[in-house]
Design a protein around this nucleic acid. Structure first.
Lengths: 349, 349
DNA sequence: GACGTGCGAGAAAGCGCTTCCCCGGAGGCA
DNA sequence: TGCCTCCGGGGAAGCGCTTTCTCGCACGTC
């Protein structure tokens, strides 16, 4: 059911001009009273202006302020897919932090398409956002990489702040995640509780984040005697369905003596879990599964998923704080990860 | 690790003025060439302007355009919690549709606080968005309800478009969801496969959406002979933890002869599932669980959750299309829901 | 009492755009 | 050839703000 709102006589929103007139003061004074300035304003005037503004339901036109001030209160956020819990958690962090900094965030989705990402950066630059945050890595082999770098650097030159989340491809401010060492720690722990033979399901062609995690995992195994054959590294889309598909292929091909499958992120791992079940096997028992990220839902799948916790919301917050020049944020180094063992990787004796 | 971007000489972004000079034409002609106008421009001139723009890496200042045109290309989206899959799916839909309409979306989170929501509406009005979409209902008993309505109506009077998603509390454009009939259909089906004794876990105090779902469920039971005692309607937070908590209380209190627990949304249902498991019971077997929404993850929990599918992304798309005056969107009526039976409610004979 | 000095109100000049309006030139028609 | 009509370029006004700059006024000082 759809109801049209009652359209009363259209009335343009009150302008500062209206407020000034209503209060009987100049435009300048009205501006100074409402939108803080270094200059003092007679208390009596200020009061009159505030009252007039309230009476007229005045709300400053942010675009006009932006034009006049030459700076906006906007931060632009680019993610691959808003519905993906990894990105929506990061987004939640960015939005929360933006709120405390009285900034407004505008959001766009690249849908994992580098062309689109470039396009979006171009469009969003038109907004003259104070900060631009890019989350989600792109293929390392991407041909538009150069163009993107160019675009971002031009944006920085014009006074913008760029922060990348978990992708240190370009020489820009970055919130780094311990992908490598996190995956390595995971591998060590898994070997520690008795696993020896592993397979990996990783994201598409040369995705930086995925590649790092696999590399770290491999390093951890190498150090502890776990085994991962090259043929047991499966490529699939970096999504739930990708994970499902990867695991299906693995099973169809025959698991052999593989004891544990590490998916390069949790959404894939969750898909993998379902693939195991759909194949009539019991995840955890017949084959163990581990993921990466610790997105909220992995507590609630069965078996609960072993993973590497990444404080995703914190990632978003850090990104913005870093841009805004928070010294702490800059000093904290890479974001800590932490191995979380759960039932999907039961101790193996 | 944090790297400061290489700060080359700061250079303000090129303005239209620069482009016009570079191309040797007037400001007016440059404007007309770049940002479509009804008036024709000499092909030769247009070409020169376009080239100049490319050379200078010109990107129009959207704020300035907004001021000059008196209208923005922004749509504002208010959700309760960005990390909640219900809202992030809706957001994904809004963003996708905005993209095709060449609109930019700015997002804010109310954190389920009506005061905050009101506050945010006020702030966002400053942006002069073309459209404002509010998702997620508020308590029906909310004291700020009037103020919110006032604010929204003022916004509409000034030419803004408001769309509410699944909350017909105010007399405004709304994308309605078949909460009532969906829940009713669910109840009928559940009774149809053999369930008789039910309990319900619902959201906090008078949340419209939750209330409708419970009411519909009740109606369905009443029509088919299912039983839901008043004492078996549990209130909890409208979140995963709320669902967990509600189920825990239900179990501690003693399930008695309750066969199925209906949670008013999927995130609660997923929490409830975990509570069942943590209590040492087997969901589906010892007690069946059903939810509402069909968020992506419910396919992957065990047992897979019976629920009522709401096309969430479509909800977001519809909201925007409705605002933009898409006739189809207006005519389609409430968004269809569909009962999806899965393993969490096995046939009971 | 003459003359700084500091304070703060208000006029006005922008900010980067769009668009109205003027006007010159090209073309059509008798 | 003369006149009228389009066509389309460019000047300039304006959008809603901020911020310089001007300037009157109330003090304080000798």
């Amino acid at each position: 059911m759809v109801e049209g709102g009652i359209q009363t006589s259209r009335s343009a929103p009150a302008t500062l001009h209206d407020v000034a007139r209503e209060a009987g003061v100049s435009l300048a004074t009205a501006s100074r009273s409402l939108n803080g300035s270094t200059r003092k304003v007679n208390e009596e005037y200020r009061k009159r202006v505030l009252e007039a503004a309230a009476r007229l339901d005045y709300s400053p036109n942010l675009s006009a302020q932006a034009v006049a001030r030459g700076t906006t209160t906007t931060v632009a956020l680019l993610v691959a897919d808003i519905a993906d819990p990894y990105f929506s958690s990061i987004a939640a962090g960015v939005v929360a932090e933006a709120d405390t900094a009285r900034l407004i965030v505008t959001m766009a989705a690249t849908e994992r398409d580098p062309e689109r990402e470039l396009e979006l950066v171009r469009t969003l630059r038109g907004q003259r956002p104070r900060v631009m945050i890019l989350a989600g890595s792109r293929p390392t082999t991407d041909p538009t990489e150069g163009a993107l770098g160019e675009e971002l650097r031009a944006y920085e030159r014009s006074g913008g702040l760029v922060v990348l989340i978990s992708r240190n491809e370009l020489d820009l401010r970055t919130v780094l995640v311990e992908n490598l060492s996190g995956a390595e720690a995971l591998a060590r722990e898994l070997v520690g509780i008795g696993y020896r033979r592993f397979a990996v399901i990783t994201g598409g062609e040369g995705l930086r984040t995925a590649a790092d995690r696999v590399e770290g995992f491999r390093a951890g195994l190498a150090a502890t005697g776990g085994e991962l054959r090259d043929g047991d590294v499966i490529r699939a889309a970096f999504t739930r369905d990708g994970g499902y598909d990867g695991m299906r292929r693995l099973i169809e091909r025959g698991l052999g003596d593989i004891e544990l499958v590490f998916a390069a992120n949790d959404v894939m791992a969750v898909g993998a879990l379902s693939a195991v079940r759909d194949a009539g096997l019991t995840p955890g028992t017949d084959v163990a599964v581990a993921g990466f990220d610790d997105i909220p839902t992995v507590r609630d799948v069965t078996p609960a998923l072993t993973t590497v916790r990444v404080p995703l919301e914190e990632l978003g917050r850090r990104a913005l704080r870093l841009a805004l020049g928070d010294a702490d944020a800059a000093d904290e180094g890479a974001v800590r990860t932490e191995v979380v063992l759960r039932e999907s990787t039961p101790r193996r004796d």
